[in-house]
């Protein structure tokens, strides 16, 4: 294919933008890995110097001391459950809002969207009281419920947008075929909204995975605590084992990245590879 001058320019512009943001995004990650292989003394001396000897034992120490294995399993259980419930509930609600007209619909949508702007850090005492009232203090289910609820506004907002853009004709055809409400949702809409579900699901998973304040507030047993507790294990009021913390952070990133790649690669690519044509 022939390129004229402007498309050449566009080509360069594209790669300059992409490469520079890749640096922006990847540099913190590389630094983190590098820092996690130093000693604390080296890190405090100059955060950007290469370590004299790579301290790989920081990783085994971190896993052992903070018991990261168990915490990761807890986080996986809590985050996947909360993501599943969240996406189920918010997609059901989004489907109702996006594809139907009913009394109070706009108010409902506006209210749920307004939930996005609630400052969660200001709700420590109410949430503590509600979870105690429900008798869910120090349970995994308590955290699952809170995470599921907290992510509801954003997920519903995103999913409504994705449901809305599915052509009406498809749903109408299925309606004529005799599909009822639930069948239209499960068989027709969910598969078509897959990119949206994957995107909202990714965000929800990461929200659960990275949440720290409520994880500490609503639990007390180490047995049910999450990976973020493992990261905080290395810092306290007067002493911080930074390299231990960084090693824990690097370990904690891997599951999130896996979820992201799995959702994005499989779901979205599966979709564009064939089946659906708008």
């Amino acid at each position: 294919m022939q390129r004229d001058l402007s498309s050449n320019f566009y080509f360069i512009f594209k790669w300059v933008i992409i490469i520079s943001f890749v640096f922006y995004a990847v540099f913190p990650f590389l630094w983190l890995v590098l820092a996690s292989l130093k000693t604390n003394a080296e890190l405090l001396d100059d955060p950007f110097k290469l370590p004299a000897v790579f301290q790989f034992q920081n990783y085994s120490n971190a896993i052992r001391e903070a018991g990261l294995g168990k915490l990761i399993i807890n986080s996986l259980v809590i985050s996947t459950s909360a993501t599943f419930l969240n996406i189920l509930f918010s997609s059901m609600c989004a489907f109702a809002i996006a594809r139907h007209t009913f009394w109070g619909k706009n108010v409902l949508f506006l209210m749920i969207t307004a939930g996005i702007l609630v400052p969660l850090n200001a709700l420590i005492i109410p949430y503590f009281a509600i979870i105690n009232f429900l008798n869910l203090y120090d349970t995994r289910f308590g955290l699952i419920l809170v995470y599921c609820a907290v992510g509801l506004p954003v997920s519903t907002f995103i999913l409504t947008e994705f449901f809305k853009s599915i052509p009406k004709e498809i749903e109408e055809a299925s309606f004529l075929d005799g599909c009822n409400f639930a069948a239209r949702y499960f068989r027709i809409m969910l598969p078509l909204a897959l990119p949206g579900l994957a995107t909202a699901g990714t965000f929800q998973f990461i929200l659960c995975w990275n949440e720290f304040i409520y994880a500490m507030l609503l639990t007390s047993s180490t047995d049910i605590r999450t990976i973020q507790f493992g990261i905080s294990y290395f810092t306290n009021q007067f002493f911080s084992d930074y390299v231990g913390m960084f090693a824990a952070v690097v370990i904690s990133i891997l599951p999130s990245i896996t979820v992201f790649v799995l959702f994005q690669e499989r779901v979205i690519n599966g979709l564009t590879a064939g089946s659906v044509k708008g």
């Binding site: 943001f21 890749v22 995004a25 990847v26 913190p28 990650f29 983190l32 990461i206 995975w209 990275n210 973020q228 990261i231 913390m245 960084f246 952070v249 904690s252 990133i253 999130s256 990245i257 992201f260 790649v261 994005q264």
Partner: peptide
Amino acid sequence: TVLFIPQVVSSAA
């Protein structure tokens, strides 16, 4: 994936 990495790293780090 790379551009998404900052999103998953703990903000404290």
